[in-house]
Design a protein around this nucleic acid. Sequence first.
RNA 1: GCGAGUGUAGCUCAGUUGGUUAGAGCGCCAGAUUGUGGCUCUGGAGGUCAUCGGUUCGAUUCCGAUUACUCGCCCCA
Length: 417
Amino acid sequence: MFRPIRGMKDLYGSDINKYNFIIEQARHIGEKYGYSQISTPIVEQTDVFQRSIGDETDVVSKEMYSFVDKGGESITLRPEGTAGVMRAIVSESMAQSLPIKLMYYGEMFRYDRPQKGRYRQFHQLGFEHIGDKSPYTDALLISMASEILNSIGIFGFKVLINSLGDDETRESYTKGLVKYLSRHEENLSEDSKKRLTKNPLRILDSKDSKDKEICSMAPIITDYLSKESGQYFEKVCALLDDYGVNFEIDNFLVRGLDYYSETAFEFKSTSEEYGDSVGGGGRYDKLLKIFGGPDVSGIGFAFGIERLMMLLDDSKFQNKAKKVAVVPVSEDENDTAFQLLKTLYDADIPAEFIHNGNLSKKMKIADRMNCGIALILGEDECENETVTVKLMNCDDKSKKTQTVARNDIASFLKHSL
RNA sequence: GCGAGUGUAGCUCAGUUGGUUAGAGCGCCAGAUUGUGGCUCUGGAGGUCAUCGGUUCGAUUCCGAUUACUCGCCCCA
């Protein structure tokens, strides 16, 4: 028997309902905040990701789904959405008129070991706001993200926020951090020793207990922020306060992709179901320029849709019973029932044609298909031009079945559904 | 890439200290109920006990390898 390949899942039933619900809410709110939708290809030239995300990141160095196509070109299944959107902005000359606000959603691919809340094919929902560098923009974006979480019924989360500062800040901070960490190099984990030369900032969010201990005494980036970056960050926090966003400053928050600068943030679930990050993002100053666009800053974030789905209650996303079952008693009534079905469809009433087995069997199928009402057509009904209407979920025996003239059935059902 | 756990019916899981026909609940099918689903009762179908190899008179059980899934680590959504 075939199964989906490792780390990939079939999405159906309550899951697909959750998925659609999340997208629907996000689109609605995104529209309110002025975002328009974009859909970019799932595959890009490998360079699109390599150059923007950073060679030293895990995403690029070990998690990319890269292939050589028949033309000999290296192509990659997108591991995240931002790079493709930036490429599209340049390819389609959208940067002519700034600012641009775009939202996207779709599948992403990362080749790592599947586990809870992590798949090789997963879905992200993201927003990018380009060409408008201001604390107001940052605060608005973060606040919108919180609103989206609330709108889908997720309230147990907190926003972690940090500033990575501008280039200057990061350069001097990295120096200071390396200087401090080098003194404790002996006690760092093996992984962190390697990071010391390759990507020292990442040591900050190591989960190794010794690393954590060493980091707790490390210099913090806030102290290194240039005057501008510092004021910028303070303003963002003040504005979030004004909007009542529940956030927490986390000086150890360092995002996994190289392109972030200034404001960085993450949405962390506080649920028992899944207590890790459900999304994150930050500001990027040079991304568009990397793709040959103008030198303007942008900010964006993405949610992991599967991680949001885990926080939603299955039972609230089962298919609802709003259908009508058309049930002929015997084969003799099939054609009349088939005509009746057409009447229902013409009146936009959702209906199922159930014609296999004896009547008892048909009723069972109607029940299983979640039909709220069954229309029974037998010899008598055909003769009298009526149908027997049975309310499947009604316990009051006197109202459970009734006879309705066939001509009136559509309007009768419109009132009952 | 590393570590741990699990693999028995469609699903959730018992069980066999190594021994004839491997069980339950749920689901499915049929009947009681040939013009009425849910509740009840009766019967039925469905298993190479993950795969391959080893030990043994005999392996679903013990051992090994493989594989799949799950959960951690790294990292991330």
